[in-house]
Amino acid sequence: MKVIIQRCSSAKVTVDDDIIGKIDQGLMLLVGVTHEDEEKDADYLAEKIAGLRIFEDESGKMNHSVLDVQGAILSVSQFTLYADTRKGKRPNFMAAAKPDVAEPLYEYFNEQLRKKGLRVETGKFGAMMDVSLTNDGPVTLILESKV
C-alpha cells in the first residue's frame, strides 16, 4: 500500500456536487492498493499514520500526532498512485489492485484508523471525485507498507 499524507487545516471531497466527506485540522490521505497488499500492510500504515508526529507543538517543532491535536482524517482511494510512467506518454495502471481486492482493503484500513480513536471521513470508492484541501505547512509525506 502507498499513502500520500498531507497535513491540512481543512479538506473535503465532493461527488456529483454533494460534499460526502469534510474535515478541519487533520490529515488528507490519498490511498493506493497494489496486488500483493494484505491486512498487515493496512495495519502497519494505520499505526504509523496515527502516531506520526507532524503537527507543531508550542515551540514550533513537529512533535504532535493527529491524535494529539484531536485532528481528523479524510481518506480518499487513489489507484493512480500505482501508475507506471516509464514508457510512453500514457500511464499504465497494471500495478494497481483490481477494485474487488482494493476496496475491501481500503475499507479495512479506514476501520483500523477509526479503532485508534480517529474520526475518518472518506470519499466514494471508484467514483469521480473533486478533492480540495488547504495544505498546512505545506507538509506532504509518502508512506509505503513495503520498502
Results as ranks from 00 to 15, higher is better:
residue 87 K to Q: 15
residue 31 V to D: 06
residue 101 V to Q: 15
residue 54 I to M: 15
residue 108 Y to N: 12
residue 86 R to G: 02
residue 95 A to E: 12
residue 52 L to I: 13
residue 100 D to T: 08
residue 110 N to W: 13
residue 86 R to M: 08
residue 42 A to I: 02
residue 17 D to F: 08
residue 100 D to I: 12
residue 124 K to V: 07
residue 73 I to G: 11
residue 3 V to W: 04
residue 124 K to N: 05
residue 10 S to G: 09
residue 40 K to M: 01
residue 130 D to L: 09
residue 131 V to W: 05
residue 74 L to P: 10
residue 73 I to K: 10
residue 45 L to F: 01
residue 65 S to Y: 13
residue 121 E to D: 05
residue 140 T to V: 13
residue 73 I to E: 06
residue 54 I to V: 15
residue 75 S to L: 04
residue 112 Q to W: 07
residue 116 K to I: 02
residue 11 A to H: 04
residue 117 G to D: 09
residue 81 L to E: 03
residue 137 G to K: 13
residue 26 G to T: 04
residue 9 S to A: 11
residue 6 Q to G: 09
residue 19 I to S: 07
residue 89 K to H: 15
residue 125 F to G: 00
residue 122 T to R: 06
residue 141 L to A: 05
residue 32 G to K: 04
residue 78 Q to W: 08
residue 2 K to H: 06
residue 61 K to V: 03
residue 126 G to M: 02
residue 132 S to C: 10
residue 74 L to H: 06
residue 146 K to D: 00
residue 61 K to W: 10
residue 6 Q to E: 11
residue 123 G to F: 04
residue 60 G to R: 15
residue 92 N to H: 14
residue 142 I to E: 06
residue 58 E to K: 15
residue 4 I to S: 04
residue 76 V to D: 00
residue 146 K to L: 05
residue 96 A to Y: 06
residue 29 L to Q: 08
residue 61 K to S: 12
residue 37 D to Y: 08
residue 68 D to P: 07
residue 123 G to P: 07
residue 109 F to V: 00
residue 54 I to S: 14
residue 35 H to F: 00
residue 98 K to N: 07
residue 74 L to I: 07
residue 132 S to A: 13
residue 73 I to N: 07
residue 107 E to A: 10
residue 59 S to K: 15
residue 13 V to E: 00
residue 99 P to Q: 09
residue 35 H to D: 11
residue 113 L to Q: 10
residue 29 L to M: 13
residue 96 A to M: 09
residue 75 S to F: 00
residue 80 T to Q: 05
residue 76 V to A: 03
residue 64 H to I: 01
residue 13 V to K: 01
residue 4 I to E: 06
residue 4 I to N: 09
residue 17 D to G: 07
residue 84 D to V: 11
residue 66 V to F: 11
residue 15 V to Y: 05
residue 47 E to D: 14
residue 56 E to W: 09
residue 68 D to A: 15
residue 1 M to N: 12
residue 47 E to P: 03
residue 9 S to Q: 12
residue 91 P to E: 12
residue 55 F to G: 13
residue 74 L to K: 04
residue 138 P to G: 05
residue 91 P to C: 12
residue 102 A to H: 10
residue 31 V to H: 10
residue 47 E to Y: 04
residue 58 E to L: 11
residue 4 I to Y: 01
residue 145 S to H: 08
residue 115 K to M: 11
residue 24 D to T: 02
residue 1 M to A: 08
residue 35 H to G: 12
residue 104 P to Y: 14
residue 89 K to A: 14
residue 147 V to P: 04
residue 68 D to L: 04
residue 25 Q to C: 03
residue 126 G to Y: 03
residue 32 G to D: 01
residue 86 R to H: 12
residue 143 L to V: 12
residue 9 S to P: 09
residue 82 Y to K: 02
residue 28 M to V: 10
residue 50 A to R: 08
residue 140 T to R: 14
residue 32 G to N: 04
residue 81 L to W: 05
residue 135 N to P: 09
residue 77 S to E: 08
residue 63 N to Q: 15
residue 13 V to G: 00
residue 55 F to R: 15
residue 62 M to F: 15
residue 110 N to Q: 11
